[in-house]
Amino acid sequence: MGHASEVSIEKLQREFQPILLDNEQLEKAFKLIRDMLVFTNKRLILVNKQGLTGSKTDYQSIPYASIKMFSKESAGIMDMDAELKIWLTGESTPTIKQDFRKGDNINEAYKVLSKYVLK
Rank of each mutant, 00 (worst) to 15 (best):
M1P: 07
G2V: 07
G2N: 10
H3Y: 14
S5C: 12
E6N: 05
V7E: 08
S8R: 12
S8F: 03
I9L: 02
E10I: 14
K11T: 15
E15W: 01
F16N: 06
F16T: 14
F16D: 08
Q17C: 04
I19R: 10
L20A: 09
L20Y: 07
L21H: 05
E24Y: 03
Q25G: 09
Q25C: 14
Q25D: 13
Q25L: 13
E27A: 08
E27N: 12
K28P: 01
F30A: 05
F30G: 01
K31P: 04
K31Q: 13
I33A: 00
D35M: 08
M36I: 15
M36N: 12
L37Y: 05
V38M: 02
T40H: 02
K42M: 10
L44I: 14
L46Y: 03
L46V: 14
L46A: 02
V47Q: 02
V47S: 04
N48K: 12
K49H: 13
Q50E: 08
Q50F: 01
L52I: 14
G54N: 03
S55N: 12
S55A: 13
T57C: 01
D58H: 11
Y59W: 06
Y59Q: 01
Q60C: 07
Q60R: 09
S61Y: 08
I62P: 01
I62L: 09
Y64M: 04
S66V: 11
S66I: 09
K68D: 12
M69N: 12
M69C: 06
M69G: 14
M69L: 11
S71F: 05
S71R: 15
S71I: 15
S71Y: 12
K72Q: 11
K72F: 08
E73I: 12
E73L: 08
E73H: 10
E73C: 02
S74V: 10
A75E: 11
A75Y: 02
D79M: 00
M80K: 07
M80T: 14
M80G: 13
D81E: 13
A82L: 00
A82W: 00
A82Q: 08
A82H: 00
L84F: 03
K85H: 07
I86R: 06
I86G: 00
W87Y: 02
L88T: 09
L88R: 07
L88W: 02
L88N: 04
T89C: 11
G90E: 09
S92Q: 10
S92P: 06
T93Q: 05
P94G: 04
T95H: 07
K97N: 09
K97E: 10
Q98I: 10
D99R: 07
F100H: 00
R101M: 11
R101T: 13
K102W: 01
K102I: 11
K102G: 12
K102V: 08
G103A: 06
G103R: 04
G103N: 04
N105I: 01
N105M: 02
E108R: 07
A109V: 07
Y110V: 15
Y110Q: 03
Y110P: 01
Y110S: 04
Y110E: 00
K111T: 14
L113A: 05
L113H: 03
S114A: 09
V117K: 00
L118G: 06
K119M: 08
